Simulated scan of single mutants.
Amino acid sequence: MNIKKIITIVSVVLISILLIYGIVVLRQIFSPNTKFTEREVYVYVPTDSRYTDVKNIVAPYIDNMDHFDMVADKRGYTTNVIPGRFLITKDMNSYELVKAMRLNSAVKLAFNNQERIEDLAGRIGSQIEPDSTLLLNTIKDSIFMNENGFNEDNILAMFIPNTYEVYWNTTAIKFRDKMIKEYRNFWTEERVAKAEKQGFTPIEVTTLASIVHKESVKKDERPRIAGVYLNRLRAGMPLQADPTVIYALKKKSNDFEQIIKRVFYNDLLTKHPYNTYMNVGLPPGPIAMPDITALEAVLNPEKNDFIYFCASIDRFGYHEFAVTLEEHNKNAKKYSDWINSKGVKR
C-alpha cells in the first residue's frame, strides 16, 4: 500500500472521528436537558451566588448536569453568574438553559388592602429577594421619612395600590425609591390642587380615603361617603367612623389578626388617637391602604347634605343616608335589629 493511499485512509478515519465527536457534542448541546413535568418553572439565584450555588439551585430541573456544565463553561457563564429570577421551560436544551439563566425576569408586584406598613413589608418580602425586616427598616428610615414628609403613622400613604414590575433581586433601597417615585407621579399638580381645595395635603387625602375605603366595598358609593365625611369635618363634628374604632382596638391590643364585625357602645369610648368618636378631625394616619377609587372619591366627592349613614339591610354592601339624626336613628335601629337577629356578637 502506497503512502498516498495510507494518508487518504487516515484522513477519512480522522474526519469520521471528528464527525462522530461533533455529532456527540451537538447532541449534548442541543438535546432536551430538563426533567420536570411542568410547562415552565422559575428558578431564583440570590445576590452574590457562585456557579456552584447555581448548580445546586437548578439541579432538580436539569437531567444531565455534565452537559449543562460544558455549555456553561464554553459560554463563560461559570465566571459570570447573574442573580435574579429566571424562566426555564420544559425540554430546553443546554444551550437554551444557559441562555435563559442570563435573562432576568421581572416580578409583577401587586398589593392592596394592607392595614399596616408591617403587613405591606411582609407581602412584598414574599415576592422579592429582600426580606420583610430589611424592607421595613429601609422604608421607615427616619432620614428618608423626614426628607419626604412622612412619619411612622402615615408612611403607608406613600404606597399607591397598583401592579408594578421590579426585578426579584432589586434591593430594598431601590424598591423604596421606586415607590416614592410612583407616589410623586400619582400626585400630579391637578390632584394636589384638588386636595388643597378640600383643605388637605396628599397624606390627609389618603388618610380620609382609607376610612372611605373601609366603609364601603361599593366603588360607586364612595364619593357619597366622602361627601358625608367632608360635611362632618366642615361642621366641626367628629368623623365618628366605625372603621377607625376597629383599627384603634386592633392597634391597642397589637392584634391585627382579630376579626371585628360589630362595634359596640363601649368600643366607642376607647381612648386612642385613632378613635374618631373621641377625637375631632383626621386620625394620625391611614387605617389601611386605600385603592385609587377611594382616593379619587375624596378628591372628587359628591356634594350632598347628608350627615349620617349606616349599613343598609335591603341593599347588601350599600348604606342608608340621612340628613337628620331622627332619620338616621330609624335607619340605625333597622340595622341593629337585623344584625341582632343574625346573632352577630362581635
Rank of each mutant, 00 (worst) to 15 (best):
residue 224 R to K: 15
residue 309 F to R: 07
residue 307 I to T: 15
residue 234 R to P: 00
residue 303 K to D: 14
residue 280 V to S: 11
residue 261 K to I: 10
residue 254 N to H: 03
residue 230 L to W: 06
residue 260 I to S: 09
residue 225 I to F: 01
residue 295 L to Y: 03
residue 289 M to N: 11
residue 312 S to L: 10
residue 291 D to P: 09
residue 253 S to I: 02
residue 243 P to N: 06
residue 308 Y to C: 05
residue 260 I to T: 08
residue 256 F to E: 06
residue 312 S to P: 05
residue 281 G to P: 09
residue 286 P to W: 10
residue 266 N to A: 12
residue 280 V to D: 02
residue 226 A to L: 02
residue 284 P to G: 06
residue 240 Q to L: 03
residue 240 Q to E: 14
residue 318 Y to S: 08
residue 278 M to E: 15
residue 294 A to I: 02
residue 312 S to M: 10
residue 260 I to V: 14
residue 225 I to Q: 06
residue 243 P to I: 05
residue 234 R to E: 14
residue 292 I to M: 12
residue 285 G to L: 08
residue 316 F to W: 15
residue 289 M to G: 04
residue 271 K to A: 11
residue 255 D to L: 07
residue 305 D to K: 14
residue 307 I to S: 12
residue 233 L to V: 01
residue 241 A to T: 07
residue 251 K to Y: 04
residue 269 L to I: 13
residue 284 P to Q: 04
residue 281 G to Q: 11
residue 296 E to V: 03
residue 218 K to T: 07
residue 293 T to V: 01
residue 299 L to E: 01
residue 221 E to P: 09
residue 279 N to K: 12
residue 253 S to N: 14
residue 235 A to R: 13
residue 243 P to C: 03
residue 253 S to D: 14
residue 275 N to P: 08
residue 220 D to H: 10
residue 260 I to P: 12
residue 240 Q to T: 03
residue 252 K to I: 00
residue 272 H to F: 01
residue 303 K to I: 13
residue 299 L to S: 00
residue 212 V to Q: 09
residue 284 P to R: 07
residue 308 Y to L: 04
residue 221 E to G: 11
residue 219 K to G: 07
residue 231 N to E: 04
residue 265 Y to L: 15
residue 222 R to A: 02
residue 294 A to Q: 03
residue 235 A to Y: 04
residue 210 S to Q: 07
residue 290 P to Y: 11
residue 238 P to T: 10
residue 267 D to R: 09
residue 319 H to S: 07
residue 219 K to Q: 13
residue 258 Q to S: 11
residue 232 R to E: 01
residue 265 Y to H: 14
residue 317 G to L: 13
residue 304 N to R: 08
residue 237 M to E: 01
residue 287 I to T: 13
residue 312 S to G: 10
residue 215 E to P: 01
residue 255 D to Y: 07
residue 318 Y to R: 10
residue 215 E to I: 04
residue 287 I to P: 11
residue 219 K to S: 13
residue 274 Y to H: 09
residue 250 K to A: 00
residue 296 E to R: 02
residue 306 F to R: 05
residue 211 I to A: 01
residue 259 I to N: 04
residue 235 A to W: 03
residue 213 H to G: 05
residue 309 F to V: 12
residue 285 G to E: 09
residue 267 D to W: 12
residue 292 I to Q: 13
residue 292 I to L: 13
residue 302 E to L: 13
